[in-house]
Design a protein around this nucleic acid. Sequence first.
RNA 1: GGGGUUAUGGGUUAGCUUGGCUAUACUUUUUGGUUUGGGACCAAAAGACCCCGGUUCGAAUCCGGGUAACCCCA
Length: 491
Amino acid sequence: MTEEKKRGITVKKTENFSEWFTQICSEQGAQLVDIRYGIQGFIVHRPWAMKVLNRIYTLLEQAVEADGHEPHLFPTVILEDNLTKEAEHAGFIPDVFWVTQAGEHTLEKKWALRPTGETQIYPMYSLWIRSYNDLPYKGYQSRHTTFRHEMTTRPFLRGREFMFFETHDVFATHKEALTQIKVDMQIMDEVIRDKLKVPFIFFRRPQWDKFKGADDTYASDSLLPDGRRLQISSTHDLGHNFAEAFNITFHNKDGKEEFGWQTCFGPGIWRIMACLIGIHGDDTGLILPFDLGPQQIVIIPILKGNDTDEEVKTYCEDLKTALKQYRVIIDDSDNSPGYKYNHWEMKGVPLRIEIGSREAAQGTITLARRLGEKKTTVKQEDLNNAIITLANELDTDIGRRAEAYFKDRIKHAQTKEELIHVIKNHRGFVTVPFCTTNNEGAVCAEHIKADTGGADVCGVPLAHAQEPKKDDVCVQCGKKATVIVYCAKSV
RNA sequence: GGGGUUAUGGGUUAGCUUGGCUAUACUUUUUGGUUUGGGACCAAAAGACCCCGGUUCGAAUCCGGGUAACCCCA
């Protein structure tokens, strides 16, 4: 193929990830979004993206429902008084969009387009929760959120309106709230790591990097192919802060009134999608785990323009019927087979079946996997096993590849000089001994950020945290290290 | 947040410095024909100068403003 005739993605992911990402999202790529809606940061999601995104939503919804959460849908707008009720949370104000007019009338009290659910959900929780019998109270909603006058917007990474998912829980005790945070971590493991094959680390954030209004913030960070950190979920330990602001109380078994202990969990649907695209995709296009494919199998008839064609077509139809437990499409468009291969590879369809006169005559099926060069031909009776095997292999391979990349992007540095050197030459996480993730550590974190050209202290992993060695000292201030923290530049 | 670059058919783009006649090419779509096991070919047709204002006999081209996008740095 000559250079002028090359279509599809024209840059290499490893050489220019930013451009690769733009192309794969666009018309020339997998046709995921259209950014020409006309208002910056508000984009159109096209069918292929919607089907993948809906699948991610479904997996998360099933997981949180299995953990006892029930669905809600709250309105798009929030009364200003509610948005500002919790003092720290009111820090969101400079970033929200406002509705000030209703037709010709100027609103006396303006409405905010919801940035996040706390201040719209908790006034209602205050009405619904009365007694210890109502607890734990676990709700969730899947919806868009509109937020931030971002100057630089990118599909799935940064926008002014984006897809959102949030659980909001109320417990009788802080202990139960802390347990929920671990459950949230397990949900991330089950869905994001196991099903989507996207690796991440679940951190406890430093105190200076908490959600506005939280006592503690926990968050998952993944890595894009350029080594930039991307936060893909957060769980907040809200303590009593919002319960006090919104008067969420319950009567305990002794008949006394107590404030509820609250948590909220928010996997970032958009950013998870960005990771799914970025981590698995290659220079030919998207690569989707078998379960995530809007179409899992594409059947490509190879026609000769002679009397065997009818036989081939019938054979394809019969196959589709036989595979009805999967999402299968027959591409009977007029394009050449090569065109179709490329087209569906760009879309990331996990498996491809090629049927020509050979297969039709012999009663065989030729299969090709999205990631992997070899084609295999099997007999009809072996088809189901072959599909299961290939699908599993694909998932295992992309999972392994993603984990290997992720592990390779975690380095250790013992001194500040080493940290600066590693951040400069090897994008990803760097672990370093650090004084403290309490507020006193904030100054050290600021110095690290300034001297490394933007690396943040991301926190300490909630599971499998490393203990500092006896003589370890903070890379910045030289005081005794109490933690090993992860540092990374973010998107 | 700071700086830079750009905006031409549905998509990608030439032309802009030095204003001028029917605006370049590829792709796309439609029609007809030959094709089809890794992005086929021939012929014909369709389709564009981001918006507002200015300079000028004349603006895609120059000037001002707006809008939108991309890249680099913090």
